[in-house]
Design a protein around this nucleic acid. Sequence first.
RNA 1: GCGCCCAUAGCUCAGCUGGAUAGAGCAACGGACUUCUAAUCCGUAGGUCGGAGGUUCGAAUCCUCCUGGGCGUGCCA
Length: 662
Amino acid sequence: MHVPNLLQQRFAEALSGITEGGDAFASMIRPTADPKHGDYQANCAMPLSKKLGSNPREVAQRIVDALKVDDLFEKPEIAGPGFINLKLTDDFLLKTLRDMLGDVRLSVPRVESEQTIIIDFSSPNVAKPMHVGHIRSTVIGDALSRTLQFIGHQVITDNHLGDWGTQFGIIIYGYKHFGDADVVMTNPVAELTKLYRLVNQLIEYRKAVGSLASLQQAVSDATAAVDQAHAILESADAEDPQSKKKAKKGAASAERRLASATGSLAAAKAKIDAVDQDSNLSQLASEHPQIDSSVLEETAKLHHGDSENVALWERFLPYCKDEINRVYDRLDVDFDHTLGESFYQPMLADVVAKLESQGLASESDGAICVFLPEFDAPMIVRKQDGAFLYATTDLATLQYRREHFEPTEILYVVDTRQSEHFEKLFAVANHFGLEQVKLVHVNFGTVLGEDGRPMKTRSGTLIGLEGLLNDAVDRAKQVVCNPERLAVFDPPMEQSEQEAIAETVGIGAIKFADLSHHRTSDYRFSLNKMVSLEGRTSTYVQYSFARTQKILENAQKCESDVIEMVAEHGVEFTHPAERDLALMLIRFEEALQTVHKDYAPNMLVDYLLDTAKVYSKFNENCHVLKAETETIQTTRLMLVSLTGRMLQVGLGLLGVGVVPRM
RNA sequence: GCGCCCAUAGCUCAGCUGGAUAGAGCAACGGACUUCUAAUCCGUAGGUCGGAGGUUCGAAUCCUCCUGGGCGUGCCA
C-alpha cells in the first residue's frame, strides 16, 4: 500500500479542473510530522495560489471541493496558511490490514516495469584478510540486492574480486622463501594468510626504514614552520585585525601539519620497532633487503605468464576464495557471480584496441589514454610498460556485462573516494555502446577510527572482520546467557539455542549498525557501540519480533487462525496505540520505495526501528490475552501477527535474521 | 592550484521532491518488574542546524560568499 501515490492520483484529478500542469502540485504530498495534523498532508495550495494569484486558503478549499477521497480519508481539513490535512479512516486502515493477512508480500506489489539490475559489490582483494573497511560495500550491496529483488526487479549480484594484483606477488614471494609445502597443503588458508601478513610486514618495515629520514625532516620542517608562524603571530599587531587573523590561521595550519607529520613518523617508528624487537623478524628483514621490489617482480612474472607463478596462483586462488567465503557464509551474503579481475584479463588488449580504433584513445607519454573534455586528467587504459589498469578492467567488465546480462541498470557499491574514476568510466561507457544502461555509483562514506581520522587501509593495523564478528557474538552471548534472563524461559534454553541466538543477534548488530547510517556520510567506527545491544539497534527490532511470537504462542494462534477470527468477530480500534501501529504497518511499501529511490537502506532501518517503537507502546498499552471482547482480541492478534511478519521480512531485506525467543 | 564531500543536543547520528513547535539513541537525572520477556517502558534536562547574506508565503534543506575539516587529483585498486 503506497498511500502517497494513491493520493497523488486523486489530487491530479482534482487539480485538472483548476490548473494546467497540476501533476507537479499533486506530488506535494507527505506524511505529517505531527499526528495532530492527521496522517498525510498536501502542501500544493500555497505554491498554487501564487500561480493563480489568489488566497491560498481559498485555493485549498477549491481543491478540497474537487477532491474525491471519502473512500480513504475522513473529511480533509484546511489548516495554517493552506495545508490540506488528511486522516485515513479506521475502516480503510482495518481493511488494508485484513488484506495483508496471509499475503507473503504484505501488500507490497511488484513494480510495474521490471528492470534487470546488476549490483557490483563487496569486491575485496583476496589473499588479504578482510577488515572492517569491507563491511560497508558488502552489507549495503546485499541489502539493496534483497530489497530491489523483493519489490520485483531482476537482480544479478556480482563480486568483482581483486584476484590478480600485488597481493599474489606477496604470497608467491612468501611461499618461495618462507613457505613449507607440507604445512601449506595441510592448512592452506591459515598458512597463506600467515605468509601474506609476514611478507607485508617486512615490506612495510622496508618502506618505513626508507621513509624515516624524510619523515624526520618533515617533522623538523613542520616544527620550524610552527615556530615561525608563532613568531609572526606575536609580531602581528592588534592594530591590523586582518593580518592578525591571517597569522592565527597560518599558525593553526602549521600546527596541523606538525601533528600530521608527527603521527606519520610515529607510525613508521612503530612498524620498525615491531620488527626490530623481534629477533626472528629482524633477521628475516636483513636477509630480504629487496623484498618490496622482489614482490613486484613476482607479480609482473605472474602477469606475463611465467609458468611457475601462474601455477602457484592457480593453486592458491581456491584457498583464498575459501577464506573469504567463510566470512560470506557467516554474514549470509552470496553472489550470483564471482567474476574477478583475472577473468577479464584476456579481454583487456581488445578493449584498448577497440578504443583506439574508435578514435577514443590515443598515445600520450607512452601510455594509452582516453581524453575526456570534462576532465583535466585522462583515463589511462594502458601504462607505459604495457600493463593494463583498473579502468581497463572496468571497461572490459562493462562490455562483458552488456553482452551476457543485458542489464538496464548497473549499481557499483564502491567507496565515494572513487567518484572521479566512475565519472570517467561512465563518460567513456557512453561512447562504448552503453548509452542505454543506467550506470550508478552507489557511493558510500569512509569508516573513520574512534579518533575521527580516516582509517587508512595501508596502515595494516585495522580490526579484522572476523575478529569483529566474534566480539559481537561474544557480547551477545553474555546477554543471552545471563542466568537471570535465562530463568524466564520455559522450556529452558539449551546451550545450542543460546549460541544460535548469540550468532544471529551479534552478526545482526554489526550489519544493522553499518546500515543505520546514511550511506554517503562518513561514520565513526566504534566497536563498543556496534556490539552494544541497547537503544536503536537490531536487537531492539529482534526483541520486538520475539515478543510478537510469544504472544501468538500463548494465544495458540497462527495467522490463518487470525484470518478466521477476523471473519467471525470483525475488527475495530479501541486504543490509539492500535491505530498508530496499523498506520506504521501499511507504510512498509513507502519505506521500500524510498530505499530504492536513493539506494539508501538506512530508510528501512529507520522504518523498522520506528515500527518496533510503536509496537512497544502498543505492547505496553494493549494486552492481547486479557482483551475485553473477542473483536478487540482479534484486532490485536491481527496487529501482532502482521507486526511480527513485517519485522521479520524487513530485517530479512537488510540481511538480518530473527529468533523466536531471546 | 583545481575538483568533490562534510559541519545539526555533551557524544554518535537521522531529518525523503523546501512545509506547521528540528528528532532519535547513548551519556545525565527521576520513575516503572506478584504484569503476554526490564535486551523494555514513561518522564526531565539538553539546540542561534558552523557564520553572513540572498531566493521564497515558508529554508537545517536551494543559491552566493566566508570559516573550519575530509577526500580526490597522469601511469595503485
